[in-house]
Amino acid sequence: MSPLDFLNSRLSVPSRQLGEPAPSVQQLEQLLAAAVRAPDHGKLTPARLLLIRGEARGKLGAALAAIHHRIEPNAPEAAFAKDRERYTFAPLIVCVVARIDEDHPKIPAQEQILSAGCVAYNLLLGAQALGYGAQWLTGWAAYDRDAAGLLGLAANERVIGFVHIGTVLKPAVEGPRPVLTDIVSELKL
């Protein structure tokens, strides 16, 4: 077995294919502690985690559908239904929030955002290591200020992603992977 087999087997399980049970309290604590061990230039801790579970999932979907309806009242009903259902499949959604200090004298905002992104990726890897499935999603709500207000985000915060976690009900299908020769080159000075 290669030490890289775990990374080579990583794949996202669509949130619609995730169900109960979610990680136990102990597993969740271990998962979150491992996830925040991400690269963090300057030790700023530029990410925080918002757990969405139980009835909050459906309430979030309904509130987001209402925001969407205000923004785009003539959108098809199917779009609003998708908003309402989006958070009801996986029993646990971890919203990864980046806390950005735009004026930091040493650490560029991009590094802070990337650090928070690593936390989201660690959640994917950690969920799989614990035997669960996970999918990192964004959607319009990750970029909307009204949705940010609904989630309790400060002006300097933004959603990096919603990581849906649960028991795999239907295995994910392996998708195409990049061919290394198409994406790898060598610097020649």
Rank of each mutant, 00 (worst) to 15 (best):
M1G: 15
S2W: 00
R10A: 07
R10Y: 01
L11F: 01
L11Q: 01
S12G: 04
S12N: 04
S15P: 00
R16D: 04
R16W: 03
G19M: 05
S24M: 09
S24T: 15
E29K: 14
Q30W: 07
L31T: 01
A33P: 03
A33W: 10
A34M: 12
A34N: 13
A38P: 13
A38M: 09
D40Q: 03
G42R: 00
K43P: 00
K43N: 15
T45I: 14
L50M: 12
R57E: 11
A62R: 14
A62V: 11
A66I: 03
R70T: 05
P73C: 12
P73M: 09
A75V: 00
A78T: 13
A79F: 03
A79K: 15
A79I: 03
F80Y: 15
A81M: 03
A81K: 07
K82W: 03
E85K: 12
R86C: 07
R86Q: 14
R86N: 15
Y87L: 06
Y87I: 00
T88L: 08
P91C: 05
L92N: 04
V94E: 03
V96T: 12
V96L: 05
I100R: 05
H104D: 14
P105C: 07
P105R: 07
K106E: 12
I107R: 00
E111Q: 07
Q112M: 10
I113N: 00
S115Y: 09
A116C: 03
G117V: 07
C118R: 01
V119Q: 05
A120K: 11
A120T: 11
A120V: 09
N122M: 02
L123K: 04
L124V: 02
A129V: 07
A129P: 01
A129D: 03
A129I: 08
A129K: 04
L130D: 02
L130I: 06
L130F: 05
G131K: 12
A134S: 14
W136H: 05
W136T: 08
W136C: 09
W136M: 08
L137E: 13
Y143K: 05
D144R: 11
R145S: 14
A147S: 15
G149M: 02
L150K: 09
L150Y: 08
G152A: 06
L153H: 08
E157G: 06
E157M: 09
R158P: 04
V159H: 04
I160M: 11
G161L: 04
F162C: 10
T167K: 12
K170W: 02
P171T: 10
P171S: 13
G175D: 04
P176S: 13
R177V: 10
L180Q: 08
L180I: 09
D182Q: 14
D182A: 12
V184S: 04
V184D: 01
S185T: 13
L187M: 08
L187Q: 10
L189E: 12
L189V: 13
